[in-house]
Amino acid sequence: MTAVMSPQDVSRVEDTSKARRHGGKRGGKNDHPLWFLIPALAVLVVFFFIPTLFNFIYAFTNWSSFKSAIGFTGLDNFITLFNSGTLLNALRVTLVYAVLVAIFQNLFGLVLALLLERDTRVNRAVRVAFFIPVIMSALAVGYIFQALLKPEGALNGILSFLTGNHVSIAWLGDTTWTIVVVALVHAWKWMGLSMLIYLAGLKTINDDVLEAARLDGASWWTTFREIRFPLLAPAVTFNVATALLGSMNGFDVVQATTEGGPGGSTELLNIFIFRTFGQGLFAQATTMSLVLFLAVAILAFPLIRMLRKREDVL
């Protein structure tokens, strides 16, 4: 039941690959003995590798809360899961959710970064304001939005006031559109982080290049499309990868807003796992989490590879 790939993991992957690229220059200087790694490695092995490995093993057993004995059952759990259809549905919902979050979070983050690019006093304050949701508890965010989006909630109250009619839209009650609403909430919570990274990316762009473009008479939009956006490639890689892979592991925001409803239309794999675990079917829950792990891995490698390919222009 361990998290599969957090933003930190992705940045770790990036760091190591960067280190590999510059490795030639730094090598030879033996100022970091390998045994310095041991304390960190020990923690990583005990709290990450071993649980992950257990995750793999228990998926092939019949571990449950009903019996003390644990026996191997081979692929039984996988066969039952794939036959029932619920797993595939949960996987589909998870993918749709992750793609929506990745799109919204990056779109909002990029727009905010462009709007708040200049280092004025006001912009600094506004940046902080937009970053606050990132450090807020995801459950708290979820519950607040759940209250705002109720049929008799504040959002409908505002809409009623503006339109002059009584509005009672069930924002979280539609089997088609609620997943979009929840993805928007998730994106809202994390857009500050994307904004920060895009801001940092924008700052690294050489002024000479932009000045040259200006002298050539390029408009703001042309400059952005032809120069600034391509040069933002590393920030895009990080943001898209973390948003997409992070929301594949999404749970808290959805649990707080819809609990997987209405009608199972927002039942992410993690919510399904949580429900199965709660039934005492520990092995089945573990099997699902293994499936999620594999799904994220299958998605992560080609995605990061593709995004890094874009960085070759640098």
Binding site: G173, G261, P262, G263, G264, S265, R275, Q279
Partner: peptide, 15 residues
């Protein structure tokens, strides 16, 4: 079993 969840799905129209 989670009969109540499935019944709620029925009310929402997905089952």
């Amino acid at each position: 079993p989670d009969l109540y969840i499935f019944l709620a799905d029925m009310i929402q129209g997905t089952k």
